[in-house]
Design a protein around this nucleic acid. Structure first.
Length: 728
DNA sequence: AGCACGCCGACT
DNA sequence: GTCGGCGTGCTC
């Protein structure tokens, strides 16, 4: 009887591949990895099924080269989630499984051992420790005493007793200690007691605890500074006490050493951290610790949503509105949406937390699908910052800063407090312009202005890797009258240094934090509480506690007010509220100044009058009236090619294939992408729109199958984006 | 996506 | 004569 396994092989093809199993090999279970020959080379795939016969002719079948796991690496539930995601996001099954595994486990290298390396006392060691003749106070004795309380991880000893390794060698030679593996995953930080929760926080924690063991989605809507993290920590502590695991997702930029330290201090030892800064081995170790059930808490970014949880208790998605949960290339999944799916399958509560919830989640609350938990009070005595529109029409500006803003900054500094000047654009100036002929420096491959970076003395494209020297004279007319137009953070920093020569000024953007040393220095510096001015981009919008910050000046508001992307308003509102949330976190009240040429814009008025809830309410009503998500389902067929005719020919053909249209589905386009040229590629797209998820889902598979067969598809790079977050 | 197989131009 | 261009088609 032939023995067949069906394998998800990491190739961009929408099917599984059958392999035979040589006699003598035992049948690998579903969820085990195997090494298989594929198109002339060896690949690592995951077994998804076994059978005693195959559609493929026996002489076409190749045998599995190697079975890599005795036990399944993935649980049934993760496998089902990935199969669902492959169908829903229309992405090749093998690549979906590849995305779910840490890089080390995508290769056939050996899986790291469980736990971490550590040392433990032997019986002889214990005897020696109890021996009154032991000389106290020596390094050897100190180590012996430390280990007397129980085995310790090497990484833990590195912290507690620097230089312990030579003493450890002596202990081992005397037979007093031995190497061991410990379930611990991290250095334990000095534990910190939990602060008392206020009534709202307590109510939120209890609501979640009451629903333990069942699917119960919650939206935790908590203003900045209201202590959402304390609610998470208390809810997680409950879960740990009941012996279960919690999965916590945070946006990329929020997973800082401060965040992980806080979790470790409060929750103790068994926390698996998963983020891009780790080495492959560290990631695989943390992933396996979670998958084996050793880790009680998994704290990670987007891809951590795929970690198997053998003993699940709770899933949390912090800053659930954050766009970084949507993968923007390849397998374009949304981690927040998959969190809902997994929580349902695992029968656990789900907490989606944000100070500025996505309109999708608010609509789910409105529809009664999610329960709302509200934290309306800031912790301690902190009060919400006051928002104030500064009309800068016909006002004198000093490099983009209104005189009255500068005065407000001066007053704030005089009081010994801190100021944040927010500008969502790094570099010195977004345009370099010739006053004589009107020329400006453009990226040849993106048709966008190059940003002037004075510090690096380069012109840089923020959309591709292009860089150029700064010309001394205009390349068109040779005039030397080249002038920077507009302000980036670098330029605002310069203006502020001239105006406030004696004040400490720190700039925080991707440029100033590029090197690890620079980043660490800056973030450490942020903790200093003396008077100072911070200049920065989005990077400053979340995370860091800045207790002495009392004034935020937001410049560049207008760019977000009139945009082609229907989500721009939602995003701008979230950004303003998040930045404003940095101000006045301690006992001093905060003020926020919004510089704008459109003081009567409805978005700003709604924000001033009723804060984010009012804005979100009116945006949601607009979306409903206009039939936009979350009240409609979108998908994009994106295409890019070197020549503009190739992508439009493909999209035209794709449009033809879709006729006659399935009921309930409509298609618009081909439309140029919001950025029609990027890195030398022409980009355009079709927008697929439907009132129901079911209608798009029924339409897409057959259509995509046809697209694969199109001749014109060969000449373009194309992809499908289901539930797109960026319309470009 | 890779990789092989295949059918036409400038080279030792 | 052949090395190699990348169009076309397949991958269990």
């Amino acid at each position: 009887m032939p023995r067949i396994v069906r394998v998800a092989v990491p190739v961009p093809l929408p099917r599984l591949f059958d392999y035979s199993l040589d006699p003598g090999l035992s049948m690998p279970a579903t969820g085990c990895r195997v090494r298989v020959p594929f198109a002339g080379r060896e690949r690592v795939g995951v077994v998804l099924a076994s059978d005693d016969h195959s559609e493929i002719a026996p002489d076409q079948l190749k045998p599995v080269s190697l079975i890599l796991d005795r036990q399944p690496l993935l649980t049934e539930e993760v496998i089902a989630t990935l199969e669902w995601a492959s169908r829903y996001y229309q992405h090749a099954i093998g690549e979906v499984f590849e995305a779910a595994l840490p890089a080390l486990l995508r290769s056939s290298r050996q899986v790291p051992q469980a736990g971490v390396a550590g040392i433990a006392l032997t019986v002889d060691g214990r005897t020696a420790l109890a021996d009154p003749a032991l000389r106290r106070g020596t390094r050897i004795c100190t180590l012996l005493e430390l280990l007397g309380d129980g085995p310790l991880a090497d990484v833990d000893l590195d912290q507690r007793l620097p230089g312990w390794r030579s003493s450890a060698r002596t202990l081992r030679e005397r037979g007093w200690s031995e190497e061991c593996r410990l379930p611990g995953l991290n250095v334990r930080d000095e534990p910190v007691a939990a602060p008392a929760l206020n009534a709202e926080q307590q109510a939120a924690v209890s609501s979640v605890a009451e629903r333990a063991g069942e699917f119960a989605p919650f939206l935790l809507d908590g203003v900045t500074g209201s202590g959402k993290t304390e609610v998470y920590l208390a809810a997680i502590a409950d879960v740990i006490r009941s012996g279960k695991q919690a999965l916590v997702l945070v946006p990329e930029i929020a997973l800082t050493p401060q965040t992980t330290r806080r979790f470790r201090q409060r929750l103790g030892f068994d926390i698996a951290i998963l983020h891009s800064g780790l080495s492959e081995r560290e990631r695989a170790t943390a992933w396996l610790a979670a998958a084996r059930g050793e880790a009680r808490v998994v704290l990670g970014t987007r891809s951590a949503i795929f970690v198997p949880l053998p003993n699940p208790g709770l899933i949390i998605v912090d800053e659930e509105h954050d766009a970084s949960y949507k993968q923007q290339d390849g397998f374009r999944y949304h981690a927040r949406d998959l969190a809902v799916l997994r929580a349902r399958a695992l029968k656990v509560p789900l907490m989606l937390g944000s100070a500025t919830p996505s309109l999708e989640s608010l609509a789910n609350v409105e529809a009664g699908r999610y329960s709302l938990l509200r934290l309306s009070r800031r912790a301690g005595v902190a009060r919400p910052p006051s928002l104030q529109i500064m009309d800068i029409r016909r006002k004198r500006l000093d490099q983009g800063l209104a005189i009255s803003s500068l005065n407000a900054i001066a007053e704030c500094i005089a009081r010994g407090e801190q100021v944040l000047v927010f500008r969502n654009r790094r570099g010195y100036a977004p345009v370099l312009f010739c006053h004589a002929c009107g020329w400006s420096a453009q990226c040849e491959r993106c048709d966008r202005p190059l940003t002037l970076h004075l510090g690096a003395a380069r012109l840089r494209c923020h959309h591709c890797a292009a860089e150029a020297a700064i010309p001394k004279a205009c390349p068109e007319c040779s005039s030397p009258a080249l002038a920077p137009q507009g302000q980036g953070t670098e330029r605002i920093e310069e203006v502020l240094r001239q105006r406030f020569p004696n004040v400490s000024i720190v700039r925080v953007d991707r440029d100033s934090t590029r090197s690890r040393a620079g980043r660490d220095a800056i973030f450490e510096d942020l903790e200093v509480e003396g008077p100072r001015i911070l200049v920065g981009t989005q990077m400053l919008a979340k995370g860091h506690d800045l207790p002495n910050l009392t004034l935020v000046v937001v410049t560049g508001v207008d760019q977000g007010l009139y945009s082609v992307d229907f989500r721009a308003g939602e995003r701008l509102g979230q950004l303003i509220v998040q930045v404003a949330g940095r101000a006045g976190r301690a006992e001093r009240p905060g003020a926020v100044i919004l510089q704008t040429h459109h003081p009567d814009h409805p978005l700003l008025l709604a924000l001033i009058a009723g804060g984010y809830p009012a804005l979100a309410g009116s945006l949601l009503a607009e979306r409903r009236a206009a039939g936009l998500p979350p009240f409609a389902q979108f998908a994009l067929l994106r295409a890019e090619s070197r020549s503009p005719s190739d992508s439009s020919a493909f999209l035209q053909e794709a449009l033809k294939c879709a006729q006659p249209l399935a009921p309930g589905v409509s298609i618009h386009g081909p439309l140029p992408a919001p950025m029609p040229r990027r890195a030398g590629f022409q980009r355009s797209q079709l927008l697929i729109e439907s009132l129901t998820r079911a209608a798009v889902q029924a339409f897409l598979p057959g259509w995509i199958e046809q697209l694969r067969g199109l001749k014109s598809a060969r000449r373009v790079r194309w992809s499908i984006d289901v539930d797109p977050v960026e319309m470009g």
